[in-house]
Amino acid sequence: MTEYKLVVVGAGGVGKSALTIQLIQNHFVDEYDPTIEDSYRKQVVIDGETCLLDILDTAGQEEYSAMRDQYMRTGEGFLCVFAINNTKSFEDIHHYREQIKRVKDSEDVPMVLVGNKCDLPSRTVDTKQAQDLARSYGIPFIETSAKTRQGVDDAFYTLVREIRKHKEKMSKDGKKKKKKSKTKCVIM
C-alpha cells in the first residue's frame, strides 16, 4: 500500500485542523484551538488504489514558523489553505509557496490551493482571484467548507493525484537520464 505524506499549511484560523478532522473523523470542530502540530493517518481508496494518507496539520501562528522547514522537508505534497473571508490569509499563500519551493529546492512541488469556509456569506476573496492565482502557479484550486464537508475529500484526493503525477514524471525523467548515460565512448 502506497503511503502519501501530505502537509496542510496556511495562516492561523483558516480551518486547516477543521478540514483535516472532517476528512479523518467526519465531524466539524467549530471551536478554535490553535494547533502546534498534529499528525493523522487514514486509509482510503483513490482511483481504485488503496493508500495510506499521513497528514500533518501544522501551526499557522507566526511564533511556530521555525518548525516549518522541518515538516516541509518531509512532506510530499501540500494543501495551501486560505479562508475566503480573510484576504490576508490569501496573500500569505505566496509566502508559504515560496518557502516550500526553497526548502524542497524545487520549482515543481505537488500543491493544491484550497479556499476554505465557502459556506460563509462574508467572502472577501473572489473565486476568480483564487483561480487566477492557482493557474499562475500551475496547481489545482478547490473551494471547501469544513463545516458542510463540501470539497473536503476532493481537496485531499486531488493532492494525492498531483503527487502521483509528480512521481510518474520524475521516474520518466530518471529513465531518460539513465538511457543517456548508457551511451559509451570508444577510443581507438
Rank of each mutant, 00 (worst) to 15 (best):
E63R: 05
Y64F: 08
Y64T: 13
Y64M: 12
Y64A: 14
S65M: 07
S65H: 05
A66S: 10
A66H: 10
M67D: 14
M67S: 13
M67V: 09
R68E: 15
R68S: 15
D69P: 05
D69I: 01
D69M: 02
D69L: 02
D69V: 01
Q70I: 05
Q70S: 11
Y71D: 15
M72Y: 09
M72L: 10
M72S: 06
M72K: 04
R73V: 08
R73I: 06
R73F: 07
T74P: 08
T74N: 11
T74F: 08
T74G: 13
G75R: 03
E76L: 10
E76M: 14
E76D: 15
F78N: 00
L79H: 01
L79C: 03
L79M: 09
C80F: 14
C80N: 02
V81W: 00
V81R: 00
V81C: 09
F82Y: 12
F82N: 02
F82D: 01
F82H: 08
A83M: 03
A83E: 15
A83K: 05
A83S: 13
A83F: 01
I84H: 15
I84W: 13
I84T: 14
I84Y: 15
N86R: 03
K88W: 12
S89Y: 01
S89D: 09
F90C: 06
F90L: 14
E91W: 03
I93G: 02
I93R: 00
H95F: 04
H95L: 05
Y96L: 15
Y96C: 11
Y96G: 02
R97T: 13
R97Q: 07
E98Q: 05
E98T: 04
E98C: 02
E98G: 03
Q99Y: 11
Q99M: 14
Q99W: 14
I100E: 00
K101F: 08
K101R: 11
K101P: 02
K101M: 10
R102E: 09
R102V: 04
R102A: 08
R102F: 05
V103S: 06
V103W: 15
V103K: 03
K104S: 11
K104Q: 11
D105C: 12
S106C: 12
S106T: 11
E107R: 05
E107T: 08
E107G: 09
E107M: 10
D108W: 04
D108S: 07
V109I: 13
V109R: 02
P110W: 00
P110T: 02
P110D: 01
P110Q: 02
M111K: 01
V112Q: 00
V112G: 00
V112Y: 02
L113G: 01
V114L: 09
V114M: 08
V114R: 00
V114D: 00
G115P: 04
G115Y: 09
N116C: 15
N116K: 00
N116D: 07
N116L: 15
N116H: 15
K117D: 11
K117S: 13
K117N: 14
C118T: 13
C118K: 05
L120S: 13
P121D: 13
P121E: 13
P121I: 08
S122A: 10
S122E: 12
S122L: 06
R123D: 15
R123A: 14
R123E: 14
R123G: 14
T124N: 11
V125C: 10
V125D: 11
V125Q: 11
D126M: 06
D126A: 07
D126V: 06
